[in-house]
Structures are given as structure tokens and as C-alpha cells.
Design a protein around this nucleic acid. Structure first.
Lengths: 223, 223
DNA sequence: CTCATCATTCTTGTATACAAGGAAACGCTC
DNA sequence: GAGCGTTTCCTTGTATACAAGAATGATGAG
């Protein structure tokens, strides 16, 4: 019944990860109801650990628990989404600044490898999305601040369903890739402010990109 | 719109807040064991909602749950503490930048009031600590980014037990207050970068202040 | 035909019972 | 007397039973 790798994870934590994956991947859409009994049956456990997992997800901001009325996948208003991207942009810019100062040989290697992986799949949206995620994570790690890296990773995950939609826009992948290139060059040169300055608008959703995002949001809401 | 209204709180959430307060206030010290039965008795509930509250606290990073071995108040290593202060400094700097751009009349009023409240109690460490907290929160709110404000508030709370110790250092309150003054002036003048530049070292724990913090940490650990 | 009110049903919230993994204490051997 | 294995007890993890608040559907009045 237990998977083998349950090394240091409680059941509730495993369940949280599973449900979290379903939310991040878009299998569970914002606003969708999370019935305790249904989930319990699906994972072959009782409601107790399911409830514990839901409480965790509520703290992570991925679900909303309305007392006595059940849990739903959290849905973000356009305003809040904008705010979250604004913070994400700043966190990633901070990663750049720190990474430029603290970059070690292994970090540099990992960055280059991640970048080349992006290049290899730049004609496949979905594959690029995953490679892109890895590239950004390589920068988080290179910051040398594990707490910052964790926070960035958390927010990245929370924005995943929305960020994914963004890359669908025409030419976005191409632009994304060339921005990566400039960021990478700046990091290698130790130009932290330069890298941060490119990263900020790379992440932040502004102007027409914001309109595009809202448009896809409405599509999502209609489903 | 989504303010933490007490009317819509589940029991588990209320319990989380109570325990959280005990941790933030130092009533529960890092490393201390959190026995489910003891807590259940204390709050006159069963273990079920207590466990849910503990899961929430684990996600918030305030307690650590070791499977089958119970929950303890999370204790931070000096390295991690340094990292968290580094991120906190950047979040608050970001608040400054945004606040300077977006400052409304009511925000300005709240800021000045909070600053005067600090002045009034600057000879009482504990009172100053609370007033100081309010001043910083006024800046978070003035950023106009509610998500950022929430994140900053969260991290502030998490660092509270350690931040509190810091003000004990000789002259720190006096320095803190004059830094506030300069930050306030910069914000009022719309000089976001200026305000951010003062805020960063105001928050970050570096050099001898870091050593001081580690020293108090050891004292805490000895207790 | 529409709306309001009440009964029914379904879901959540909480307590409790039981199972099972650690911790600790005891005794045993060397 | 010290170290190790065993046994006991204590704590956590999970399921289930029951209570109580929403949602839903039915029934009747306007």
C-alpha cells in the first residue's frame, strides 16, 4: 500500500504532493471542488489524512477552505495574479544578483547545460516549458541562498498553471530563449544588476502580455 | 476582499494561530516538543484538529514534523537565519520601491502615525518592538501589492523571535529610529530607490549584528 | 408559473477506538 | 559494571462513528 520511497514523508505530505501536482499540471482547475470522500477513495485512505493534506495546501495557497463548505482549488483574480508575478519577478531578479556574485564552477556548468537543453527543444512548447523551468531553477540554486531558492520554487509552482498558458503566445518561446541567453551571459560576466534587469521584465507580466494572460484566464474559467 | 476575517475561521485555523502566537512570542522555544495530547487537553479539543493545525504550521515552516516521531518547534541554523534575513531585506526594499511610487494620502497618514508611535515609546524596548512592527507593516500595506504585503508579514512573523532579540543590542533602538526617519522622508519624496537603499541594511543582519544575533541564539538554545 | 419554506440528504467537523512504530526501561550476558 | 537485546509502554497514524451545518429537492401558497 505504501510506496517504497516513503523515506521521510508522512502520508499527508505525500497526498499533498499528489494533489498539488494535479493542480499545477492543470488536471484540477481553479474553482474545482475537492470532495474529501472522492479523494479518499481515489488514494485508498480515509478522510483523515486527506483533510491534513488539504490543510497543508490551504497554507500553500493552492486551495481555499471555506469552513463547513469544503475545499476548492484556489482561483486567482487578475489583480492577485499580477501581484504574484510582480513578486516573482523580484525574487528571480534577486537570485540573479546573488548568483552573479557567488557563481561557482558547478553552478555555471548546470546553467549552461540547462540553457542548451532549452535550445534543443525550442520548437516544442510543452518540452520548452519544462526545460525553461529547469533553467530558472538552476538560477535559484546558483543564488547560494537555499531559503530564497525554496521560496522561488514555491511561487514558481503556484504560478505554473498560468505561466504555462503564457508560452503559447506567438513568438514568446523565441523571445524567452534569447532573453535567457542575455541573462546567462550577464551572470557569467558577474554582472548581477545587468542580469537582474533582464530577468525582471522576462518574468513580469506587463502590458499586452498581461492582457493575453487574462484572456487565457477567461478561457480557463469557462471550462 | 480576502482579509483574514475572524468570522470565517475553522477550528484548525484558530488553533494554528494560537500555537503560532506562542512560537512567535517565544513562549514555545525552538526545538521544543509539541505533544498532541497535551495540546489537545490545553485547548479542550481532540487530537484531530490539533494535528490539522500542526500540519499547517509545518507548511508555514514554524514546526517540523518528523514522521512517527512527533512535531517540534522549528529551529533555524545560523546560515538559514542569515538567508531569511537576506530575503526579508529584499522584500522590504521592494515594498519601499513600490510604496514610493504608489503612496496614497491614507498610506502616508498611516506611515506618519506609525512613525510617531515609535518615537513615543523609543525608550521602552518591548513597546518599541511592537511599534516598529507596525511601522514596517504600514510600509507593506503602502506597497499596494497585497500579496507582497502578506508574504512580508508572514516572514516578519517567522523571524519575530529572533528579530526581537536584536533590538536588545546597545543603541540599536536609537539607530533603528533614525533609519526609519530617513526611510519615511524618502518615501514621502517619492524616492523609491533611496528608501529601498536605506531599508535593505536596516533589515539585513550583517557583520557584527550577525554575530550578536548568533550569540543570542546560543543563549536561546541553552534554555 | 414562480417563489418561499420545510424536509431530506449529503458533506464536513470532531471525537474516539484501534493499530503500529519508537522510546525507554528492564534484565541479561560478558 | 558496561553494553546489548528484549519487552513494555507511550505516542503517533489511520479508520470509523456520530453530530451538525449546508445544499438540494419537494411541496404548497400566491
Amino acid at each position: 500500500m505504501m510506496s517504497d520511497d516513503a523515506s521521510a514523508l508522512s502520508t499527508a505530505q505525500r497526498l499533498r504532493q499528489e494533489i498539488e501536482n494535479d493542480i499545477a499540471s492543470g488536471h484540477l482547475v481553479p474553482g474545482e471542488r475537492l470532495d474529501e470522500v472522492t479523494l479518499a477513495n481515489r488514494f485508498h485512505v480515509s478522510r483523515t489524512p486527506i483533510r491534513e493534506a488539504l490543510q497543508q495546501l490551504a497554507m500553500a495557497g493552492m486551495v481555499e477552505i471555506r469552513p463547513r463548505r469544503g475545499a476548492v482549488v484556489a482561483s486567482l483574480t487578475p489583480e492577485r495574479l499580477y501581484e504574484m508575478f510582480e513578486v516573482m519577478a523580484e525574487l528571480e531578479a534577486m537570485c540573479c544578483r546573488l548568483a552573479a556574485r557567488r557563481l561557482g564552477p558547478s553552478d555555471a556548468l548546470a546553467l549552461e547545460r540547462a540553457h542548451r537543453a532549452c535550445e534543443a527543444v525550442r520548437h516544442d512548447h510543452d518540452a520548452y516549458y519544462r526545460a525553461n523551468e529547469m533553467f530558472h531553477q538552476a538560477i535559484y540554486a546558483a543564488s547560494g541562498n537555499t531559503f530564497l531558492a525554496e521560496q522561488a520554487r514555491l511561487l514558481q509552482r503556484r504560478l505554473q498553471p498560468y505561466r504555462r498558458l503564457q508560452l503559447r503566445v506567438r513568438n514568446r518561446v523565441q523571445n524567452s530563449f534569447s532573453e535567457h541567453e542575455r541573462i546567462l551571459a550577464a551572470l557569467m560576466a558577474g554582472e548581477g544588476e545587468e542580469a537582474a534587469g533582464i530577468m525582471r521584465p522576462h518574468v513580469q507580466v506587463q502590458g499586452e502580455r498581461f492582457s493575453d494572460l487574462i484572456a487565457s484566464l477567461k478561457l480557463l474559467g469557462a471550462a
